[in-house]
Simulated scan of single mutants.
Amino acid sequence: MSDAPHRYEKIEQNLREAIAAILKETGEQQKDLTKLLGHRSLTMVSRRQRGTTSWEISEVGLLATHWQMPVGALFEGRNAALQALPPERAAQLRHSKEAPVLQAA
């Protein structure tokens, strides 16, 4: 029996965790992603982040471009995504959202 479905679920989980971590780091919200991706409703992003619906590869590409990072880092999970997110881009997005600038520990 193949464990391919399990690996697929892990990739989806990694992606959701990476997106959630980047949103926290940048001060962005799901509604910002809704607008960026051209969805009419927050429900589309919310369903993807809950795992009800899978992220489309084109959407992941748009997010990576928006965050100025390699798309592959999003599939590797939270830590890889945060390391790949350029600090200047995170600061720029936080500033645009009037979120506090986080300092490295």
Rank of each mutant, 00 (worst) to 15 (best):
L82C: 10
R94T: 13
F75E: 05
I19G: 08
R47C: 05
G51F: 00
R16K: 13
L62I: 15
G27Q: 08
R47A: 07
G77N: 04
Q29L: 08
E98P: 02
Q92V: 09
I19S: 07
Q29M: 11
S46T: 12
G77V: 01
P87D: 06
H95M: 09
P86A: 11
Q83I: 09
T53Q: 07
E59C: 03
E17H: 12
K97G: 09
Y8F: 14
I11G: 01
L74P: 03
A81N: 02
T26Y: 12
R40C: 03
P5Y: 06
Q49F: 04
Q29G: 07
L63V: 13
E28H: 11
M44C: 05
R40Y: 08
R47H: 13
M44R: 09
E76Q: 15
K97V: 05
M1Q: 06
S58W: 04
G72P: 01
A80S: 15
W67T: 06
G77H: 00
R47M: 08
R16F: 06
A80C: 08
K97A: 10
R40D: 01
R48Q: 14
T26C: 11
Q92H: 14
L74A: 02
V60P: 12
M1D: 10
I22F: 10
E98S: 14
A104N: 04
E59L: 03
F75M: 13
L15A: 09
A81S: 05
E28T: 05
L36D: 01
H95G: 02
S54I: 06
M1N: 12
P87V: 10
L42S: 05
R78F: 07
G38H: 07
N79T: 13
F75S: 09
P87C: 07
E12R: 15
A104L: 10
H95D: 04
H6L: 10
G27V: 04
N14F: 09
A84K: 12
T43P: 00
V45G: 00
P70H: 10
K97P: 09
P70G: 08
H6A: 14
L82P: 04
A104D: 13
S54T: 14
A20E: 09
K97D: 06
M44P: 01
V45R: 01
A81L: 04
G61A: 13
P5M: 03
Y8M: 14
I57T: 07
E88K: 11
T52Y: 11
E25L: 00
L62V: 15
K31A: 01
A104V: 11
E25F: 00
Y8Q: 15
L42W: 01
T34V: 04
L74D: 02
D3P: 02
T26E: 12
H66P: 15
A91W: 01
L74M: 04
V71Y: 10
Q92R: 12
V45P: 01
T52C: 03
E98W: 11
L74K: 02
F75G: 10
T43M: 03
E17A: 12
A64K: 13
A104W: 07
T53P: 00
Q29W: 05
M44Y: 08
A90M: 11
H6G: 03
K24W: 02
Q49H: 06
Y8L: 15
E76D: 13
R50A: 11
E76A: 15
Q29I: 03
S58D: 10
